[in-house]
Design a binder for these strands. Structure first.
Lengths: 178, 178
DNA sequence: TAAGAAACTGACCGTTCGTGCAGTCGGTGC
DNA sequence: GCACCGACTGCACGAACGGTCAGTTTCTTA
């Protein structure tokens, strides 16, 4: 297997599980059976590695948010968006953990600033396109609320409530947007 | 001024602004005009200082969530809760920044685990008491949704969208719960 | 198959971290 | 005025960090 890809994979998992600051490169290298120097070679620095990982997760998010928005009616599109969000949330906790971490933490936030802005404006644009079809008057506020709801659900599911009733929340919110 | 209090105040600001991991005690001591040894003396360790700060913020949150729930009708209580949430969010960004940081970041999350569980179960209990009066059937899901919404709003307001329309969101959500 | 480029190693460097500890200082009770 | 105590200082230590670099191996291509 390509050591570069292997490095990204391992680092993604470790950064998600332990946080960026709390994961020394020595541990990443150890787990990936790779020498320290190779990180410098491929990514220049630890921050470079972080940016590479964030870019990769952005591609996944773009995939989730890019649904064919021509033939469906807007409410069906919202439900489809919700379905893919919840299945992703259940399938890959670490994915959300990582994104929450790096956005909230000041130092990583700074390192990724341009990438975060780019990603979030994409998500907002895609969401607003759907809400424009439903109610062009309040679409801005409703789009922000929609995104905030999902983020809040992910936040509480991951980090706060151990017995978070994800299934019930999912049913409730899908019914709301149908 | 009491150096212990001064230390807590300065550390709170620095941990919020720069993150816990990224704030060495040397910087805290420098800004507080205090020696390193004093932290050991008062808080035993850096983690001890963190727990002390978290406890203090919990007291503030308890204050926000403790409203006289006898004479008002439940919807008025919700609005009051929302009002105090939004005014706090506008007045003290760092307060939310700090709480988001330590909950999301794996290492601080671990250090504060018991305190976080205690706090969040208190918040949930208080919220559910209100929703029980409105609709006892769906109160559990609705309480979780209510909390998730507010957390999501705080998250996006703080960390993601620079032009987040907080005022409009506030009006929208207050209307929703009236 | 020669030779240059790219992948990769591992020892090493300078720095910074949290913590421990010996010791100073000022106040308080006896 | 003596004994005591908590607040407080500041240095020193060992560990751990990210990054560098000279050198080795593997791949590419002509």
């Amino acid at each position: 297997m390509n050591k570069r890809e292997q490095l990204i994979e391992i680092a993604t998992r470790l950064f998600s599980e332990r946080g960026y600051e709390n994961t020394p490169l020595s541990v990443v290298c150890e787990k990936a059976n790779v020498s320290k120097g190779l990180i410098s070679h491929h990514f220049k620095s630890k921050d470079g590695l972080l940016r590479e990982i964030f870019l990769k997760t952005t591609k996944l998010i773009v995939g989730i948010n890019t649904i064919d928005n021509i033939n469906q009616n807007p409410n069906e599109q919202l439900v489809e968006l919700l379905e893919s969000f919840f299945s992703q949330l259940e399938a890959d906790k670490l994915f959300f953990q990582f994104n929450m971490n790096v956005i909230v933490q000041p130092n990583t936030r700074e390192v990724l600033d341009d990438l975060i802005k780019e990603r979030s404006s994409f998500i907002f644009k895609k969401t607003k396109e759907v809400f424009d079809k439903i109610d062009s008057k309040n679409s801005l506020v409703k789009s922000h609320m929609f995104i905030a709801e999902l983020d809040g659900i992910a936040l509480n599911y991951l980090g706060v409530y151990r017995d978070f009733p994800l299934k019930q929340i999912k049913e409730y919110i899908i019914k709301k947007y149908t």
